[in-house]
């Protein structure tokens, strides 16, 4: 089982990282891991389910804001108001914010809210048999609308600035490298658990059903399944995963703002998955980490060059390796393995 060995190796690497990386680099790695969690969800929805979702930023954001609101309230000033509300002249805590004070509610909202929004949207959209490019455009429009909504309600959402200035994550001190290491460990654990959970789904009967829906949606109806429901559940699951990543992103990076959730960031989440290989969960994770690492690397030296490089890579992969890096690796491995067998057969 080479897969199991690679998994153990990756877990070991994740465990060793805090010992060798500076707190700054460890923070960056934790950020990449958040994007990798989203990538697992995208690989499920897009790679397995054929739903090209260009709006994962929305669900990432819903999770992020759900978490951010709670953390903000924990640090609220004497009037019980988050700092930005005081600056915006808000005098009383809006009703929308009140339940967020409860940590159980906030933690549940992190996954329930994105899941519920995706589920309702999926029911509406997939029932009407909206799919392919139409679904992609719709999900992208959703990301655009979400950002406009967030920016427009300054007093409620912090507007363009979003929610920031977090000094604590529950009991952890985010200004202390020790506290940040724990946040990193939580994020790494979340990635591993998400990966394993989605892997189980992919290997289950439901996973086979999902591939069937992707390849022959109309045929699946005549097997007695409702493809709209299969897609809706999967889409909601990918949203839950994105929400979890968004929630972790808040303590990891210390901010959640509309600029992180719109059309472009949503596309960037997808680029890593495409590069790594959307049909492979491991490929998607590797792709997301690699692309974001490369982004940091190049942006430090050639800030303007990165976008061109990213676009170029995206085009190259789509043209020459539509299954991404994972596809290239698989092809190489198959060639390596099959050769001896063919000789025997021939």
């Amino acid at each position: 089982m080479s897969g199991r060995i690679s998994l153990v190796l990756c877990v070991v690497l994740l465990a060793v990282a805090p010992l060798v990386l500076s707190p700054f680099r460890l923070g960056l790695l934790a950020k990449y891991l958040c994007f990798a969690i989203v990538a697992v969800g995208i690989a499920l929805a897009w790679g397995r389910g054929g739903m090209l979702t260009l709006g994962q930023g929305v669900f990432f954001g819903l999770g992020g804001y759900a978490m951010g609101m709670h953390l903000k309230l924990r640090e609220a000033g004497p009037a019980g108001l988050p700092d930005f509300m005081v600056w915006s002249g808000v005098e009383e805590l809006p009703a929308l914010w009140k339940p967020s004070a409860n940590p159980v509610f906030a933690l549940a909202a992190v996954v329930v809210l994105p899941g519920l929004v995706a589920f309702l949207l999926g029911l509406l959209v997939f029932r009407q048999r909206v799919r392919g490019a139409y679904f992609a455009i719709l999900s992208q429009a959703l990301a655009a609308a979400f950002v406009i909504l967030l920016v427009g309600r300054q007093g409620l959402t912090g507007g363009t600035n979003g929610l920031t200035n977090f000094s604590r994550f529950f009991a952890l001190d985010l200004t202390d490298p020790g506290g940040r290491r724990v946040v990193y460990a939580i994020t790494a654990a979340a990635l591993v658990l998400t990966y394993l959970a989605v892997k189980l789904v992919v290997r289950s009967r439901f996973g086979a059903l999902l591939v069937a829906v992707r390849d022959h949606e109309d045929r699946v109806r005549f097997l007695g399944y409702d493809p709209a429901l299969v897609k809706t559940i999967t889409f909601a699951a990918s949203a839950v995963v994105a929400g979890l990543a968004g929630a972790l992103f808040v303590p990891v990076v210390g901010i959640i703002s509309p600029a992180l959730l719109g059309v472009v960031p949503s596309l960037e989440l997808l680029v890593g998955v495409a590069l790594g290989g959307r049909f492979s969960l491991a490929g998607a994770v590797a792709g997301a980490i690699a692309v974001n690492y490369a982004k940091t690397l190049f942006s430090e030296d050639f800030p303007e060059g990165w976008l061109y490089l990213q676009g170029g890579l995206f085009v190259l992969v789509l043209v020459f390796a539509p299954r991404g890096l994972a596809g290239v690796v698989e092809a190489a491995r198959d060639r390596f393995r099959r050769r001896p067998r063919e000789e025997v057969a021939g």
């Binding site: 189980l200 289950s204 009967r205 439901f206 086979a208 007695g224 559940i233």
Partner: peptide
């Protein structure tokens, strides 16, 4: 064969 299975059974491996 599995179209009558409930979702939780579908989520298991064959």
């Amino acid at each position: 064969a599995g179209f009558r299975l409930p979702l939780r059974s579908l989520l298991r491996r064959r």
